[in-house]
């Protein structure tokens, strides 16, 4: 099984430690993992801003880069969701179909494909989980609070495998943080207010570390926290899963 690691552009440029943790974690779990260096981005920034036409070249670049892998694993629910749901406006060649079907977020790959039941990880902190919307509602990584049905959460299942992690409960379990890509600069006041309200929920419930499956949401909240000098650390989910 050949695994291609996709590292979203903002992780590549600003949060390499999350990319390194993602790579090391897959290695540790025995995967034949490769990071194709021609990769750039999934195209979501353009498409969510209404410029799907300008994203098509990037879609094709992504498909070319990853078509030879059995699975493409990304530490991002948002990018994964974009490839799976929105690569529907380019010709559906066998390569495109293959890449769309087999691009997975980390929680999906670890639980549904590798079917791991334990992890050699240790992280003795109170952790607040930010459930980024595209992974949460798009990929259905957990039951969202609006729906009626059995409770489940792939991310919580993984975090519970890490020794020492104490997962805190939030007042609002899955409200958006207000990042929303270009929304964060188009509507800065609302975006920041949404971020503040999320962070305060974590602080009220005594989180020491906020984690989540999307670095973009964490970057937004971390930016606010740094400015406010909150006593909080932000770490991508894979950094905790890889922490010993």
């Amino acid at each position: 099984m050949k695994v291609g690691l996709f590292i979203p552009c903002y992780i590549d440029q600003f949060f390499p430690q999350a990319g390194i943790a993602a790579f090391e974690l897959l290695k540790k779990l025995g995967c034949d993992v490769d990071y194709p260096t021609a990769q750039t981005c999934c195209g979501q920034p353009m498409a969510n801003s209404g410029n799907e036409e300008d994203a098509k070249k990037t879609y094709k670049h992504y498909v070319r880069t990853f078509r030879d892998y059995d699975y493409i694993v990304a530490p991002s629910g948002s990018c994964t969701n974009h490839v799976r749901k929105h690569y529907d406006n380019i010709a559906q060649s066998p390569d495109v179909i293959h890449v769309r079907k087999n691009t997975l977020d980390f929680p999906e790959f670890l639980i549904d494909v590798l079917k791991i039941e334990s992890l050699d990880a240790h992280f003795p902190y109170k952790v607040g989980l930010h459930q980024s919307c595209h992974g949460h509602r798009g990929l259905k990584l957990a039951k969202s609070s609006e729906l009626v049905g059995e409770e489940y959460s792939k991310i919580r299942t993984l975090l519970n495998m890490v020794k020492g992690v104490e997962l805190i409960n939030l007042d609002r379990t899955d409200e958006c943080c207000g990042f929303g890509g270009t929304f964060s600069v188009k509507e800065p006041e609302i975006s920041i207010k949404m971020g503040i309200d999320r962070i305060d929920d974590h602080l009220r419930n005594k989180a020491e570390v906020i984690t989540g499956g999307d670095m973009s949401c964490l970057m937004h909240m971390q930016g606010i926290s740094l400015r406010r000098k909150d006593k909080l650390r932000y770490m991508h989910l894979v950094e905790i899963l890889n922490h010993t």
Partner: peptide, 25 residues
Amino acid sequence: NIWAQKRELPKVPEYSFKEWYKKNN
């Protein structure tokens, strides 16, 4: 810079992931 009016920019790392990967792998 609308982003940074009430938010800090991320701290700049010494290298990108891609640069790290090329060096180490």
